[in-house]
């Protein structure tokens, strides 16, 4: 009988071997402890949590039906939002390309430039648009300039990083061929590098424009222009039906932006 039991035991099937299982349990245990700590320690008044669905449906009810009053205001603000995103994306191109050039291993003039370029990209990317906006509102006062600058400063990191990677991934061979003809550095760049990164450039700029449309909808919450300004105003005055209209307008704007983006992408690429 013992023999038979042994045989059975041998035939027990496990999905994972012992070490894998240990790691899995350790990770699971660690995660659980982390969650337990987070739930216990977080500064939440729990009765509010249970009341939250109630509160949200309440807010939803107050928003319904959306009010069409002030629609022309909203449309103007939407247009301003689009302007901010577009102008900022346009300006970014001129700033991001030189940074990408010095931050790419194969085109950077020297190591100091390489690290300067990388430093610019990292600092631009690690500060969120709305924090940039906070800073520029403090400097230039509330208004669209702060918004445009905030978007520009955040987009430099995005476009610069992706363009830098595109430059690093080019085919080296045409570069070699151009150098062999006796072309200067600028001509090598114009003939062997620019044509190769053109498709990536269009794709990246279009992608960032789409993201910038979304980002510029919130700039107004810190006073940096766009639709966010009137959204904040409507919330502050408890004009919930207007808030609902603004939200719908934002969704439509974002969806239109996405449609334009995919249209452009299919045209260009």
């Amino acid at each position: 009988m013992v023999d038979h039991a042994q045989q059975l035991a041998d035939r027990v099937w496990h999905r994972y071997d012992r070490k894998e299982r240990l790691i899995r349990y350790a990770v699971l245990l660690g995660t659980l402890m982390l969650v337990f700590w987070a739930v216990r320690d977080i500064d939440i008044f729990w009765p509010w949590v249970w009341d939250a669905p109630n509160q949200m449906s309440n807010l939803g009810a107050r928003m319904w039906p959306p009010s069409a009053a002030g629609l022309s205001n909203i449309l103007n603000a939407l247009l301003e939002t689009v302007h901010i995103a577009t102008l900022a994306t346009f300006l970014t191109i001129f700033l991001a390309l030189p940074v990408a050039y010095i931050a790419a291993q194969n085109t950077t003039p020297n190591r100091a430039c390489l690290w300067l370029g990388r430093f610019i990209l990292v600092s631009s990317r690690s500060v969120n648009t709305i924090i940039w906006a906070l800073l520029f509102v403090a400097i230039f006062g509330p208004g669209v300039l702060a918004g445009i600058l905030a978007i520009v400063f955040r987009s430099i990191g995005f476009i610069g990083k992706l363009m830098g990677e595109a430059i690093e991934e080019i085919d080296r061979r045409p570069v070699e061929a151009m150098e062999a003809t006796g072309a200067s550095k600028a001509k090598v760049v114009a003939y062997a590098i620019v044509p190769q990164v053109m498709p990536a450039f269009f794709a990246i700029v279009i992608l960032r424009w789409d993201i910038n449309i979304r980002e510029s909808t919130v700039l107004g919450l810190v006073g940096a222009g766009g639709i966010g300004v009137i959204l904040q105003g409507a919330i502050d005055t408890f004009a919930w039906p207007t808030v609902a209209t603004i939200l719908i307008a934002i969704i439509i704007l974002v969806l239109i932006g996405e449609a334009i983006t995919s249209l452009l992408r299919s045209k260009v690429l």
Partner: peptide, 12 residues
């Protein structure tokens, strides 16, 4: 901001 309006300030 919508959730803040609905459930109040704070991490929730």
């Amino acid at each position: 901001i919508l959730f803040v309006a609905a459930v109040g300030f704070g991490p929730l």
